[in-house]
Amino acid sequence: MKTRIGFGFDVHKLVEGRELWLGGIRIEHTLGLLGHSDADVLIHALCDALLGAANMRDIGFHFPDTANEYKNIDSKILLKKTVELIREKGFSIGNADITVCAERPKLNPHIPLMQKTLSECMGIDLEDISIKATTTEKLGFTGREEGISAYAVVLLEK
């Protein structure tokens, strides 16, 4: 059996007039993330980690932000397509470990639903998805509540 590790990172700016989508769920907040799609920074980092582990470039290569077909798309669709791509190459997902950096809103109450949603999208056990939330202690763009970032690490098996 061959195992491969992938790492993903993404960041999006917080703005007024947009819904906040993280981990495939809508979270009530006064600001939302700006992007071509729904700007779900958690899912985008996860897709990059999956694609990286499979040596298949990145989310922008497969789902470019210049393509109208991806305008305002639900990132869960991108995740499902990403999982299909890596499975076509013979990989299965061992586990995913994700960290989201945001000052507000508090994300801990939403983590179980995010895990359930990602588990269903990816076709893997809930126990194989770890999601953590942290702040940057009011430092940097995240601390100033200008944006949210996410980091993801995955293990693939072939």
Rank of each mutant, 00 (worst) to 15 (best):
W21E: 01
C47D: 11
S75Q: 01
I86M: 02
N95H: 11
P109W: 11
D40R: 03
A67M: 12
H44D: 15
R26K: 13
G60E: 06
S75V: 02
L85Y: 09
L50V: 05
L50D: 00
R26D: 11
G52T: 05
K89C: 03
Y70T: 07
P64K: 04
K81C: 04
Y70A: 05
D40T: 01
S119Y: 07
D97Y: 08
K106F: 10
N95L: 09
D38H: 05
K89D: 11
K106R: 10
D38Q: 04
L34C: 12
D58T: 10
R57F: 03
R104M: 09
F61Y: 14
S92H: 15
D65Y: 10
N108M: 06
I111M: 01
L34Q: 13
T117G: 14
P109H: 10
L79E: 00
R26A: 10
F91S: 08
L79W: 04
L79K: 01
K89T: 11
D40C: 04
G52W: 03
L34R: 09
N108K: 15
Q115P: 06
N95D: 12
K106V: 15
E88G: 06
D48S: 08
L42Q: 12
G32A: 07
A49V: 00
L78K: 00
L42H: 07
R26H: 13
